[in-house]
Nucleic acid binder design. Structure first.
Lengths: 251, 251
DNA sequence: CAAGAGAATTGGTAAGACCAAAAGGAAATG
DNA sequence: CATTTCCTTTTGGTCTTACCAATTCTCTTG
């Protein structure tokens, strides 16, 4: 098992899609411009037309281009670095963002959530407690708990953004690993923190909900720091002594 | 010109992709399950294999499935309603989310931004003032202003999320239209609001930065409300009298 | 029973063909 | 001369066939 256990290779269309995205990023094709015809791209890139079609569809699904039948593919927006493969975010950045955003979401949810939604959240808190006892580390209910609160804001944009942050964790192997390690080292407290959030929601107290959610995620950041130290020490043991001091001093 | 001026039709692969997503949502293929082979899907859906490939690539780009060469396509995650086409977010939801998130981002930026970044933000405020005088309604600098603040948080996840919210506006024709209308009706105030945010940032005052940004976006929401009423009246004039009262009473 | 070689399955890509929509220009028309 | 109409060209949409490569299955073999 390497760092990336099951990397799926091949996929020629991905190479072409990446090349085209770089062309877009270079400014060669500004917004509104038309890309060369599929047949032209096929010959210039030495691939078949189906491959070109696949690449363009990849861009289309990401909202980068718009294909008009009989006319061509037109640039819709320019790619940012988050569109490029290998885009990773630190677990700390992710959790800091969640601290801010989910704190506000909890505050809003305190004023918007229905009693039924609060009941559902309470069941999720219980589910989290059960999962923690099993110790096989399922964080599914944890995710659902946070997303249920986001949903209770009745604001699709907020829910969408917070769900996006959770998904980002999965795209970053490092972040996922760190979270897993943090979870195994620190289990009990999260139950109390979750119930604190729920209580604030039931009391319809936005400020308390925000504070409880922030406290919870601040605790997560702490455990991430702890796990980072652990990981650093592990690596230091495994590698040369020279690296040891450096990793231990890193927060 | 109808409500959707340039709807691109056809695209058989999209129909198939949607069908497959519905299959995933139905639970028929749980996470980790393998989809039928491309050739099987082609025959069962009465399409060609290239079309099946295109549909699967659409799912792959969205992170719904993972394709393993020589093995098959495996379910990676289940689709939510935000994955389905026709997913639109209200301009109000969008701005409410921005009010909460960008408020926090401004507060964080007040403690993190470098002097150079603040200078850059100041230049953007000036650019916004210039664009407003031209009255041809370019909101490019406005976007840059908000994104510069998000970037000043030094947190990629926060920047990414806020940029995502801005991009969502483009995907929703209704939201874009409403914003355009709101802009044309209400120009002057935004300059003062932007300078207020900048001043708070320069003073390194997180609370003031949050408050200024929230005030600014609250103002945007107000102008959206105003524009909504305008639009309602316009439509009412254009359509039958019977509809008139109904639209006018809608907030 | 285990290990290895071969066959079957599956995705990856190419090439060619034909259809339908769109765009551009030429000809007919007012 | 301007406008409209129609036809040709371009372009994307889809299908079919074919072959290659990676994987998986199966059956033989020691």
């Amino acid at each position: 098992m390497s760092d990336t256990p099951d990397k799926t290779q091949d996929r020629l269309y991905q190479d072409l899609a990446r090349s085209l995205m770089e062309e877009l990023a270079s400014g060669r094709y500004p917004i509104g411009a038309r890309l060369p015809a599929e047949r032209e791209l096929a010959t210039s890139y030495n691939v078949s037309r189906p491959t070109v079609r696949e690449a363009i569809i990849a861009l289309e699904v990401q909202g980068l281009v718009e294909v008009k039948v009989g006319s061509g593919a037109y640039v819709r927006r320019l790619p940012g670095k988050e569109d490029l493969p290998g885009f990773n975010i630190t677990a700390f950045e992710l959790t800091e963002a969640r601290l801010l955003f989910e704190g506000e979401a909890a505050a809003l949810a305190a004023t918007q959530a229905s009693d039924e939604e609060l009941d559902g959240i309470e069941r999720l808190v219980e589910a989290i407690a059960r999962e923690n006892q099993q110790a096989d580390g399922a964080e599914k209910s944890d995710r659902e708990f946070h997303l249920a609160i986001a949903r209770a804001t009745r604001n699709t944009a907020i829910y969408n953004a917070i769900e996006h942050l959770w998904d980002l964790r999965a795209t970053s192997p490092e972040a996922a690993l760190l979270h897993e390690k943090a979870r195994s080292a620190n289990i009990k407290p999260v139950v109390d923190e979750h119930t604190a959030v729920l209580t604030a929601l039931r009391n319809r107290d936005p400020g308390a909900a925000r504070a409880a959610m922030r406290a919870h995620l601040a605790q997560v950041i702490d455990s991430l720091l702890f796990a980072t130290e652990e990981r650093a020490i592990e690596e230091a043991r495994r590698t040369a002594q020279a690296k040891r001091a450096r990793y231990q001093s890193a927060p």
